[in-house]
């Protein structure tokens, strides 16, 4: 359960978020908005990596920092180091515990997560030798290995091949059914539009928050992106915004 009330944040006086309020309980929530709209800042605040200047954030009733042990996190691909020969197993094991030494259970947990994302054969491989899609799935496995109550993913489908993306979406749906709460930051919402419960449309302020049918329309999208966004309405009645180079 996440409660964000009137949260504001600025980097050296430059406003990144202003009076953002939303809450979710056991839901699959997507955060979308243009570049620089504060999506990553918001999830960093939820994880307690940044401290809000104004407002309040509670995660499962706790202060953000105190709830970190309940959160599995998959960062943006550009924030991780790929220039040294770290192995897949080392990365997935990182998610299992904060203890100094890994137990047999930790290793089993890590192997299970890697199997879940369909890459058990890469256990001993060098991370840097994998394709971008495989690397993203390994990072996803690390987040799952923690067996979190809340899963936070920052642009997980960025540079990911379609089979990898579909595999990740299947797993997210499965985790959702098992009761895991999920927040996903996306540039292109279309691949998960039918799967999510709520969308937070962000551009420094919360432009709209609600179910995809409530939130995504030409008016709110124009407010968020500052320009007319073409939409395609699918046969299930969802408005698919045509943003970026990937269309619905």
């Amino acid at each position: 359960m996440i409660e964000v009330k009137n949260v504001s944040y600025a980097y050296n006086g430059n406003i990144a978020l202003q009076n953002v309020t939303f809450s979710s309980k056991d839901e699959f929530v997507a955060v979308m908005g243009p570049n620089g709209s504060g999506k990553t800042t918001l999830i960093k605040l939820i994880m307690g990596l940044l401290e809000s200047e104004k407002g309040e954030i509670k995660v499962f009733g706790r202060e953000a920092k105190e709830a970190r042990n309940l959160i599995g996190y998959m960062p943006q691909k550009d924030t991780i180091a790929r220039h040294f020969p770290i192995r897949v197993k080392d990365i997935v094991l990182m998610g299992t515990t904060k203890r100094r030494f890994y137990t047999k259970e930790d290793i089993e947990k890590a192997k299970k997560s890697l199997e879940e994302v369909g890459l058990p054969h890469l256990w001993n491989e060098r991370f840097s030798s994998l394709s971008q899609g495989q690397q993203q799935r390994v990072m996803f496995a690390r987040a799952l290995a923690k067996e979190p109550k809340l899963l936070i993913l920052d642009e997980p489908f960025s540079a990911v091949d379609l089979p990898s993306r579909d595999k990740m979406i299947d797993i997210l749906n499965e985790k959702r059914r098992e009761g895991m709460e999920i927040i996903i930051v996306v540039h292109n919402i279309n691949p998960i539009l039918h799967e999510i419960d709520k969308v937070l449309l962000l551009n420094k302020k919360a432009i709209a928050f609600g179910s995809p049918r409530e939130v995504l329309n030409q008016e709110t999208l124009k407010k968020a992106y500052g320009t007319d966004i073409q939409i395609v309405v699918c046969k299930e009645g969802y408005c698919h915004p045509l943003i970026g180079d990937e269309h619905a």
């Binding site: 960093k44 994880m47 990596l49 970190r68 042990n69 959160i71 996190y73 960062p75 924030t79 991780i80 180091a81 040294f84 770290i86 080392d90 990365i91 990182m94 998610g95 904060k98 100094r100 030494f101 690390r142 923690k146």
Partner: peptide, 22 residues
Amino acid sequence: LAFNREFLFISFDMEGAMVQGI
């Protein structure tokens, strides 16, 4: 030797390490 795991984790992914409670 004592903090090899922590040093490796922060070298690979500083924010991920923080979320992991390190």
